[in-house]
Nucleic acid binder design. Sequence first.
DNA 1: TCTTGACTTCGAGCCCACTCCAACCCCCAC
DNA 2: GTGGGGGTTGGAGTGGGCTCGAAGTCAAGA
Lengths: 122, 122
Amino acid sequence: MDLTIAETAERTGLTAHTLRYYERDGLMLEVPRSSSGHRRYSEGELGWIELITRLRTTGMPIRDVRRYAQLVRAGEGNEAERLEILCRHRDAVRDRLEAEARHLAAIERKIAVYLGEADNCH
Amino acid sequence: MDLTIAETAERTGLTAHTLRYYERDGLMLEVPRSSSGHRRYSEGELGWIELITRLRTTGMPIRDVRRYAQLVRAGEGNEAERLEILCRHRDAVRDRLEAEARHLAAIERKIAVYLGEADNCH
DNA sequence: TCTTGACTTCGAGCCCACTCCAACCCCCAC
DNA sequence: GTGGGGGTTGGAGTGGGCTCGAAGTCAAGA
């Protein structure tokens, strides 16, 4: 593959700015470079970006993603700590989604009131 | 009732700072004052705070909450616009919760990989 | 009367996560 | 070999949403 940063931005939905920022901030594993120093992303990088984007999108703070990346970069032997980060996050996300679903239901009831107890909006 | 700001903070889970900030920023309806100028919250205020907290918790930006509050303060006649704000938000929340649920499932699969395909964490 | 403590306002500060320069480099087509 | 369109870096700027501090007011209890 060997994508440029622009192509990678396109494919991942992040901006080139954000991809550089993530790398600077320690969220990426090693990103290969071309002979002229340009970043070259391939399968491995795209997969990693997908993972950290999932973590970010579900609300994991940058610092926790960085810690996870540090552990992965450190290599084998710290799987327990990685797992703990993921499990903690999973639990937090589950709880939040549950709470938000309840808030959503309340908002839907509010909408129903505006509609004079009808069921649909528009 | 007539709660002080501290009691209201306690009951709503917001801080007194945040309650004042919301008021300053136009998110509140009229908040009654005691003779000495202290805020006095009762049923109506608590209900409103509960609503806007639901909107905020589900990701509605401050400016949209403010717009909604403006409409409510303006009185009857703009229910269609209020409804549109709520419906738009409801749709956005539904979409996001759905997307986050998919990300969560992917993270759970990742956890399962760490666990060697077992089902539970810890 | 004096202190204590909860309140008031205004404005500044903070944290997070980007987002955007400015200045420079490199390669390719014309 | 020149112009343009990529890329590079370090550092500064932005926007959202609080969060805090300073200085003052007020009411109740010792």
